[in-house]
C-alpha cells in the first residue's frame, strides 16, 4: 500500500506525459526525424539493446570511478580546510573560482594532455562533481554543536579524537547529501567528456545518433542515462540508511 502510494503518482504522470507526446506526434503530423514518438524510442530500446548496454557499461565505469574520485577528493579537501585556517583562506576562494571555469574550455585541452582514454573523462567528472561534496561537508563541520566540542575538551580529548568521535560522525549525513548531488552531476560530466572526444559510451552514442538520423536511438540513450542516474541515487540513499541510521530514526521513547 505504501509502496503503491510512492510508485503510482510518478507512474501515472509518466503515462500521461508519454500518452500526450504519442498523440501529439501521431495526430499532429510531426516529422519523426525531428521528434520521434515514445513508441519509436521503445523500439530502439529493444532493437539496440546490446549496443546500448555495451555503451552503458563504458559510461557507468566512468561515472563510478569519477564519482568515487570526486567524493574522496571533495571530502579530503573539506577535512584539510577544516583543520587548517591557512588552507581555508588560501584554497576555498580558488575552489569556488574553479567552478566558474567552463568545462567546455578544459575538456579539449585535457584531450591533448591525456589522450582519448579513461583519464580525461575521470578528470572532467571529478572536476564538475567534487565541489558539492566540499560544500556540503564543510557545512556539516560548521553545523557541529560547539558545546559538544567544549565537552570533549573537558574530557581532555585531543583535536584528532574530537574529530574522530564527534565532528566526523556528525557530518556523515551531509557527506551523503554531497555524494548524491555529485552522482547526478557526474552523469552529465561523463556525457560531456564522451561528447568531446571518445569512441564509446552513451554520450558518444548520443553524439553519433544525431548525424546518423537516428533520433529515437539518441532518446533511448538519454532514457538509459536517466534510469542510471536514478538507480545510483537510490543506491546511495540505501547506503545512507545503512551507514547513518540514527539520522532517520524517529524520535520516540521505548520506555518511561
Amino acid at each position: 500500500m505504501r509502496l503503491a502510494r510512492r510508485v503510482l503518482p510518478p507512474a501515472i504522470l509518466l503515462l500521461v506525459l508519454f500518452g500526450a507526446w504519442e498523440l501529439y506526434v501521431d495526430l499532429g503530423g510531426v516529422d519523426r526525424l525531428v521528434l520521434p514518438a515514445p513508441r519509436d524510442v521503445a523500439r530502439s530500446l529493444f532493437e539496440d539493446r546490446s549496443l546500448l548496454l555495451s555503451n552503458l557499461l563504458v559510461t557507468a565505469k566512468e561515472v563510478l570511478l569519477g564519482g568515487v574520485l570526486a567524493v574522496v577528493l571533495g571530502f579530503g579537501l573539506a577535512v584539510a580546510i577544516q583543520f587548517s585556517r591557512t588552507l581555508r583562506a588560501a584554497v576555498y576562494p580558488l575552489l569556488i573560482g574553479s567552478q566558474a571555469v567552463p568545462v567546455v574550455v578544459i575538456a579539449p585541452v585535457l584531450l591533448i594532455w591525456l589522450g582519448f582514454g579513461l583519464a580525461p573523462k575521470l578528470v572532467v567528472i571529478a572536476l564538475v562533481s567534487f565541489f558539492p561534496v566540499v560544500v556540503t561537508t564543510l557545512a556539516g563541520f560548521a553545523a557541529v554543536d560547539q558545546d559538544l566540542m567544549k565537552l570533549m575538551r573537558t574530557f581532555d580529548a585531543t583535536r584528532l579524537r574530537s574529530f574522530w568521535h564527534v565532528e566526523l560522525p556528525a557530518t556523515m549525513p551531509r557527506v551523503f547529501t554531497g555524494a548524491k548531488i555529485a552522482v547526478a552531476v557526474a552523469v552529465i560530466g561523463a556525457v560531456f567528456a564522451e561528447w568531446t572526444g571518445s569512441s564509446a559510451g552513451l554520450g558518444y552514442l548520443l553524439n553519433q545518433s544525431i548525424p546518423q538520423l537516428l533520433p529515437a536511438r539518441a532518446m533511448a540513450s538519454v532514457a538509459i542515462l536517466c534510469v542510471f542516474a536514478i538507480a545510483l541515487f537510490g543506491l546511495l540513499s540505501l547506503a545512507e540508511r545503512v551507514a547513518v541510521p540514527w539520522a532517520y530514526q524517529p524520535r520516540g521513547e521505548i520506555s518511561p
Binding site: 554543536d145 558545546d147 559538544l148 565537552l151 570533549m152 574530557f155 581532555d156 580529548a157 579524537r161 574530537s162 568521535h165 564527534v166 560522525p169 556528525a170 547513518v244 540514527w246 539520522a247 530514526q249
Partner: peptide, 19 residues
C-alpha cells in the same frame, strides 16, 4: 548533548574514549 549515533553505553563511555 548525547551523541545521537552512539548507544547509551558508548555515550556513557565517551569520556574514556576521549582519553
Amino acid at each position: 548533548l548525547l551523541l545521537p549515533w552512539l548507544s547509551a553505553l558508548d555515550n556513557a563511555a565517551l569520556a574514556l574514549r576521549a582519553r
